[in-house]
């Protein structure tokens, strides 16, 4: 599904990703871990097309196509979704309107008609239960005045409605209490299918108790310094990152 080959990227003059290669197949869950500043959030944002980063070499193919050649909205229309670490507030635009616009633009890009507004309401009512959100939140402005936990739930609600093929969760667990973490993880797990894939970027092993990865990759200094199965996360929990970072 996704093939990252020796990608280098920088923000301004600063090189952040220094040669990352990673293959993600349908049905897999990959965890990207690493200390602060290792480049894990940058990797997530580069896949989604964040304008603040410049890819200087390497390639990313998605479903056989050149992902880096696509605008962010085209990536999204083809099924890439990034749950933001810091979701953006959009005052004046309701969640419901925002979601319906996104949903219909994706349908349009895939040659489908707009959804009937009543059908969309039904869809949202069903999806909002997944993240245990108050339906009244649908009629509030996107993320405006939401608590940290509400914003993260709202990200997962968007993911539930848009049903991406490749979901990237950028530190979705940061700042969540255990109850919220359970809800958010439960939502992600419920969306898991054989034909989609998930990349979970996290600083803490804790999340991986709830979203169990098939593969764990450790980033340090803009490179993957170790890859392994889910047991690698437990090892990191016990030993910290230093032994890997020092070895790199």
């Amino acid at each position: 599904m996704l093939k990252i080959d020796n990608i280098h990227a920088r923000a301004g003059e600063k090189e952040i990703l220094k040669g990352i290669s990673l293959t993600v197949n349908a049905g897999e869950v990959h965890a990207i871990m690493g200390p602060n500043g290792s480049g894990k959030s940058t990797l997530a944002q580069v896949i989604a097309g964040h304008p603040g980063f410049e890819v200087t070499s390497g390639s990313i193919t998605y479903g056989g196509d050149d992902l880096l050649d696509m605008d962010p909205e085209v990536r999204a229309q083809k099924g890439v979704f990034l749950a933001f670490q810091y979701p953006v507030e959009i005052p004046g635009v309701t969640n419901a309107y925002f979601l319906r616009s996104a949903y219909n633009e994706i349908r349009k890009a895939n040659g489908q008609e707009d959804i009937d507004p009543m059908d969309f309401l039904d869809l949202m009512e069903k999806k909002i239960k997944l993240v245990d959100m108050d339906p009244a939140m649908l009629h509030r402005s996107v993320n405006a005045g939401f608590s940290g936990g509400e914003k993260k739930r709202n990200e997962i609600l968007q993911m539930a409605v848009l049903e991406p093929k490749l979901a990237i969760l950028d530190e979705t667990d940061s700042g969540l209490d255990i109850d919220a973490l359970r809800v958010v993880s439960g939502g992600v797990n419920a969306l898991k299918r054989a034909d989609n894939a998930t990349i979970v970027v996290t600083h803490y092993q804790r999340l991986l108790n709830y979203i169990v990865p098939d593969f764990v990759h450790v980033l340090a200094g803009g490179k993957i310094v170790k890859s392994g199965g889910k047991e690698l996360a437990l090892e990191l929990e016990a030993k910290g990152y230093d032994w890997l970072v020092d070895a790199a």
């Binding site: 979704f81 933001f84 925002f98 616009s101 633009e105």
Partner: peptide, 8 residues
Amino acid sequence: FYMKSRGI
């Protein structure tokens, strides 16, 4: 970027 990343 946030809006575009949702397909808009």
